[in-house]
Amino acid sequence: MTSSNDAPPLRAWLLLGLLALIWGASFLLIKKGLLAFRPDQLAAIRIASAGFVLLPFILRRFRTVQRQHWPKLITVGMVGSFIPAFLFAFAQTQIASGVTGVLNTFTPLATLIIGVLLFKQTSRLQQWLGIVIGMAGTILLVTASASGELDFNAYGLLIIAATVCYGLNLNLIKHKISDLGALTITGVSLFLVAPPAAVYLFFGTPFLEQTGDPQFAFALTAVLALGIIGTAGALIIFNTVVKMSDTTFTSSVTYLIPIVALLLGVADGESFFLQHALGMVAILSGVWIANRKRKSPA
């Protein structure tokens, strides 16, 4: 890993851009997956494919998991992957993929709020200012309409609930299982929830009966790409970038994902209102303010 004073290498910048493209495109892949699948089916395929594809990378890591880790890893799998996958899928039946990508940016603020309220993390006035600004942007996004008037979309709350799950997950990892490596935590936790997702898909939904749907192959390809590349592959890239630079540099992907998501959404014919732009600016400003480091005294 480079020191804080070293500029990240070109390869780190290229991988960061690739990561932003992958995660930014995830919301459009969800949209395409919904062409043939119900939201619950899409989420199940996503989790099952991501969990099983990572298995070869984590087989040897199972030996590092101790008895006290298992309940925590199951919780991480449910809160960090399983539940958000379903929330995003159901939300995007009524929300454009680009807007979903912007709302997802609330995750760093949700992480901060939960850390302060539940894990006794210290906070500064500057961070709460960022939270308030970010919340104002969130309100703009969930009430945006073509007429410019406020039109509340309750499905936006599903995305906010997903970011709360992500925030809880990140705090659990940081405060409860920090002794395990990132790949072990993510890979094992995903694998633990993959079998239930697969069982539900094949025995709880008419998945096999849908193979005759003209959109089936296209939608399945989109969802498999979402799980394998957007979840498993992105994790490997993320860990690589962290090792090549630092967490501050890697976290800057937060600012790139909504831009990619919005551009892809507009290219796919989605509407983009002034309120969307204002909401995005407000959320990103809030994240930047909340995460800005305090300058050390001269």
Rank of each mutant, 00 (worst) to 15 (best):
I114P: 10
L87T: 06
I160Q: 04
H175L: 11
L109T: 09
A194E: 05
K120G: 11
T93R: 14
T107E: 13
I257Y: 07
Q92Y: 03
D151S: 15
I74E: 12
G101Q: 06
A267V: 06
A146E: 06
I177N: 07
R124L: 12
V260G: 00
K176T: 13
I259V: 14
G33R: 01
A91Y: 03
P84L: 14
A282L: 05
T111V: 10
L109W: 11
G148N: 05
L170A: 15
A12H: 05
A232D: 06
L109E: 10
A44E: 14
R61F: 02
S4H: 11
Y200T: 12
G265V: 02
A25L: 07
L129Q: 02
Q215L: 11
F86E: 07
A89T: 09
A290K: 05
P9I: 15
L284H: 07
G212E: 02
A20H: 01
R63K: 01
S49A: 10
L263G: 11
F86K: 02
R294N: 14
Q68D: 07
T122R: 14
G115I: 02
R60I: 06
K120V: 12
Q121S: 12
L224N: 05
A267P: 06
Q275E: 06
V188Q: 04
F86N: 00
I177V: 06
F119G: 05
L172N: 10
S3R: 11
R61N: 05
F57Y: 04
G181L: 01
S97F: 06
A290P: 06
A144Q: 08
K176S: 13
I139T: 03
D179M: 01
L158W: 01
A48P: 05
M1G: 08
H276W: 14
P71V: 03
A44S: 15
S245I: 08
I114K: 06
R124M: 13
P84I: 14
A20N: 04
T247L: 03
I113Q: 09
L29F: 08
A144Y: 09
Q66F: 14
G148Q: 08
L192P: 00
Y255D: 06
L180Y: 00
Q127N: 12
I173N: 00
T186M: 08
P39Y: 02
R46N: 10
A44Q: 13
F37E: 07
T64M: 13
A154L: 13
F90W: 01
L192V: 00
G134P: 08
V53M: 03
F106R: 09
L34Y: 03
A198W: 13
V65N: 08
R61S: 08
T2K: 11
S81L: 15
V79W: 00
A110Y: 04
Y200L: 14
G33Y: 09
Q275W: 10
Y166N: 10
G77M: 00
A44F: 14
L158P: 04
F37V: 11
A194L: 05
S3T: 12
K293P: 04
S285F: 07
T143P: 06
T107F: 12
W288D: 15
L73C: 05
P71D: 09
L42R: 11
G286D: 11
L170Q: 15
T122C: 12
I289D: 13
P9Y: 14
G227T: 01
R292I: 07
V102I: 12
N153G: 02
L18V: 08
T122Q: 14
D268E: 01
L157W: 03
F27K: 09
A222D: 01
T105P: 13
G230N: 05
L16I: 12
A48L: 03
L10C: 00
F207V: 09
Q66G: 12
T138H: 08
